[in-house]
Each structure stands twice: as C-alpha cells, then as structure tokens.
C-alpha cells in the first residue's frame, strides 16, 4: 500500500519532458518533489505563475508570491507571472498538458466530485471546474476509500459534480486505474496489495486483466 508520497511518486512517472503541469492542493502538490533531475517541466499555478519553484528559504518569503493554495513559493528561472484571465486561457485553451487533482468521488464514466458536501460548509469550487472541463489529460490522486472505509470509486457519484466524463486515470494508495468505456480498468497494483483487495475496495465496475503488474516505485 502507498502513502501520499508514494502516490505522488507514481504520478510523477506520468510526466513527460516538455510538459506544462497544473498540480492541485494536497497530494498533487507533492508530485513536484519527484520529477527527475534534468527533465524540462514547468508547473502552473492558476493564481498566475508558470515556472513555480519550491517553498522559499526561511526569511525569503514574499507575500506577493504565492500558489493557488495561498502558500509562499519561489519562481524558477524562466518563470512568468500573469493575470487570472490569462491563466484560465492557458487552462481552457488546453495549453497545459497535465492536470493532477484530488477528489472525494470518481465515477466509472469519468465524472468527478470534489467541491461540495451537502449540509456542510460550502467553500467553493475555486478553479477545479475550469480545470476538469478543459484539460485533456486529468489524473486524480486520492486514497481508494474514505475515512469511513467506503469506496471512492463508484458506479455514479453521489456528491454534487465538479465535472462530467473527464477523468482518464486514477492513482490511489492501492492501484492505478484507467477509465474507459464506462468502467474502471485495473492497470497496476501498489506494492504488497492483492487484486482481491482492490476488487473489494472498488464499488464501481472494475475490469481486471489476467496480468496486473506491481507498480515500480523506487
């Protein structure tokens, strides 16, 4: 079974040279820590920076330089700042090659719910609806089950939707799964996890091929 950093490490393997990547808050943010040295990748944060760098050294933080999670950050050489309309032109216009975000629920038709729980405080969708509606390549990073032990991979989402039919791949603490033709397809098992455990933790339709390799994570 993977921890959050393990999920991030596996997703980092999906990133290709020359890609612009938008990372959501939480586990997705950790993906930046596992990009191989020398790979040409730029991180976009939708509040208005391309070429986002790591957190600043203590004492160097700048209130005018933050990411979409409102955390203080740095800018890499070659970075650029822009306004919010330009930022979402990059996203809506499909100039960003990969979007990684978290989810509360994912359905076997690619629907995603990650912004609202009825009856609880609604904080808003931020940029999530724009991101999922337009990105061609969306990977969801999340735990396979919620805190109550219930599957987050469902036949249909029960929570209010963020976007419809948009998720292509899900990486959880248990598995890598692709979504196509209205079903989850098991691609890889996390180290030490059996196919039976994944089947038991997946509420939606799961297609299991004869051979399910274990993830290769260093």
């Amino acid at each position: 079974m993977l921890d959050k950093n393990g999920i991030a490490k596996r997703i980092a393997q999906e990133v290709r040279n020359g890609w612009y990547v938008n990372l959501g808050i939480g586990i997705p943010t950790l993906v930046a820590n596992y990009i191989p040295d020398g790979m040409e990748v730029e991180f976009q944060s939708e509040n208005g920076i391309l070429g986002m760098g790591p957190f600043p050294l203590e004492g160097d933080e700048d209130a005018d330089l933050i990411n979409a999670g409102k955390q203080t950050i740095t800018a890499m050489p070659g970075a650029v700042y822009f306004d919010s309309a330009t930022s979402f032109a990059m996203i809506r216009g499909q100039h960003v090659q990969l979007t990684v975000l978290g989810a509360m629920e994912v359905a076997q038709n690619g629907d995603i719910a990650n912004w609202k729980i009825p009856g609880k405080m609604v904080k808003g969708m931020g940029g999530a609806m724009d991101l999922v509606a337009s990105a061609e390549n969306i990977i969801v990073a999340m735990m396979h089950t919620n805190r109550a032990g219930q599957s987050k991979l469902l036949e249909a989402c029960s929570l209010p939707l963020t976007g419809v039919g948009c998720v292509k791949r899900v990486v959880t603490n248990l598995a890598v799964l692709d979504i196509r033709e209205g079903a989850f397809h098991l691609v890889e098992r996390a180290p030490g996890v059996t196919v039976e455990e994944i089947v038991a933790a997946t509420a939606g339709t799961l297609v299991v091929p004869d051979d399910v390799p274990e993830m290769q994570i260093s």
Partner: peptide, 29 residues
C-alpha cells in the same frame, strides 16, 4: 468557477455581454 469569474470580469470591461465556456457543464453551476 474561478476561470469563469475572471473571464466574466474581463468580458464586462471589454464590451462582451456573454460568452460560452465548458466550465461547470453538467454541474449545478
């Protein structure tokens, strides 16, 4: 949605009364 908010302000300033966006389709938005 954040991108729609930004574009709605931009449109307001640019004399564009409305625009189509994929963001929020199929949701309560």
């Amino acid at each position: 949605p954040q991108g729609s908010l930004a574009e709605r302000c931009r449109a307001g300033g640019a004399g564009i009364p409305a625009f189509y966006t994929p963001a929020g389709f199929g949701t309560e938005v």
